[in-house]
C-alpha cells in the first residue's frame, strides 16, 4: 500500500467520508471507532482505560484510547513503531511522570481505582506492577540483590524472607537452576537472556497485580527469546500480563488477547486467535500478515 505517502488533510477541511478505511481516517486525523470484539467485554478487567489521551509537550501520542485489560490473561499490544504502545504501557505505572512536559487526559483505573488521582501514592502504585524493559537492565549488583531490590526498598530486612523470595522469583523466572550457585556474583556477568530473566524475577518478586513487558525479547537471540516466551506462558497463570511486541509470531504464541494500535489510536482489539486468523478489519489482517506497517 502506498497510503503512507498520502498527504494528511486537515480534518475540518473535509467532511467525514465513510468510504475511507480506518487507517486513512487515522492518518487524516479523523475520529475513529475501534473494533472491539465482544469476547473482551465478557472478561472482567483489572485495568480499565477510558478515553486516555497523552501529549509529549505539544505532540499528541495517544488519542482517546479506551479498552479493558482482562484480569489473569496475557494481552499483547501490537502495531508499527511509534504507534504509542510503549507510551501506553509506561502510562500504566506512571513512568511517564519522569519525563517533563507529559500531559494526560482521560482515566486509567486499576481495580476500579484511578491511577492518576492526586491522592494515589505513585510509589505504592508501581509496587503493584512489575515492569520489564526492552534491554536487560540489571543493576550492577549481585544477582541476589538484583532480584530482591523491590523488597529491599520496601524495607524488608529479614534475611530468611529475602532468601525465600529470591528463590521463588528465580524459579518463577526459570533461572533458579542456572543461578542458584552464583547468587553472589554480579548480574552483569550473565548472558543477555539470563540478565533479562533476572529482570523478570525482579519484576515478579513482590507479587505484583500486573506485569508490564515492554518488548522483552527485542534485544535477545532466538533461543533466549524462546525461553522468555515459555516463561511468559507459565507466568500468565498467576499474573495479568500486558506485553508490547513487534513480533507477530510472539504475540500469537504468548497472548490471549491482542490489541492493534496505529498512530496513537486503537484499531482492533480481541482474542488473539480472532485477531490473527479472523480479524474484522482488512487493515489488521494486512498488518499481522506483514503486508503493511
Amino acid at each position: 500500500m502506498s497510503l503512507m505517502t498520502t498527504t494528511p488533510v486537515q480534518p475540518d477541511a473535509q467532511p467525514a467520508d465513510d468510504s475511507l478505511s480506518i487507517i486513512q481516517r487515522i492518518q487524516q486525523g479523523l475520529e475513529t471507532t475501534p473494533e472491539i470484539h465482544p469476547a473482551l467485554a465478557q472478561e472482567s478487567s483489572i485495568l480499565e482505560i477510558e478515553r486516555f489521551c497523552l501529549w509529549y509537550t505539544k505532540a499528541q501520542a495517544i488519542f482517546s484510547l479506551s479498552m479493558g485489560i482482562p484480569r489473569g490473561k496475557v494481552t499483547a499490544l501490537i502495531g508499527p513503531s511509534g504507534c504509542g504502545k510503549s507510551t501506553l504501557l509506561r502510562s500504566v505505572n506512571r513512568l511517564n511522570d519522569l519525563i517533563d512536559g507529559v500531559r494526560i487526559e482521560g482515566r486509567m483505573l486499576l481495580n476500579g481505582e484511578s491511577i492518576y488521582d492526586p491522592a494515589v501514592d505513585v510509589i505504592d502504585l508501581r509496587k503493584r506492577m512489575g515492569m520489564v524493559f526492552q534491554r536487560p537492565n540489571p543493576f550492577p549488583m549481585t544477582i541476589f540483590e538484583n532480584v530482591i531490590y523491590p523488597l529491599r526498598i520496601d524495607g524488608e530486612r529479614r534475611r530468611s524472607v529475602l532468601v525465600e523470595a529470591c528463590e521463588r522469583a528465580l524459579r518463577g523466572a526459570a533461572l533458579w537452576d542456572e543461578a542458584k550457585d552464583r547468587l553472589n556474583e554480579s548480574a552483569l556477568g550473565l548472558s543477555g537472556g539470563q540478565q533479562q530473566r533476572v529482570c523478570i524475577a525482579r519484576a515478579i518478586v513482590a507479587e505484583p497485580d500486573v506485569l508490564l513487558l515492554d518488548e522483552p525479547c527485542s534485544a535477545l537471540d532466538p533461543i533466549a527469546t524462546l525461553r522468555i516466551e515459555e516463561l511468559i506462558h507459565e507466568i500468565s497463570e498467576r499474573y495479568t500480563v500486558l506485553i508490547v511486541t513487534h513480533n507477530m509470531q510472539q504475540a500469537s504464541r504468548v497472548s490471549d488477547y491482542t490489541a492493534f494500535m496505529y498512530l496513537g489510536r486503537l484499531v482492533e482489539c480481541g482474542p488473539t486467535v480472532d485477531i490473527f486468523q479472523n480479524p474484522r478489519l482488512q487493515e489488521t489482517e494486512d498488518y499481522v500478515t506483514g503486508r503493511f506497517g
Binding site: N93, R126, M131, P140, I153, C199, A203
Partner: peptide, 27 residues
Amino acid sequence: VQPSLREASYGSGASKWQTIKRVVLPG
C-alpha cells in the same frame, strides 16, 4: 548513570531518594 537503571529502579517502586541512594550514587 544509565537512564535504563533509573527506570528499572523507579519501575520497581523505588522513591526518588531510594533510587539516588541505591542506583545513582553507587553508579
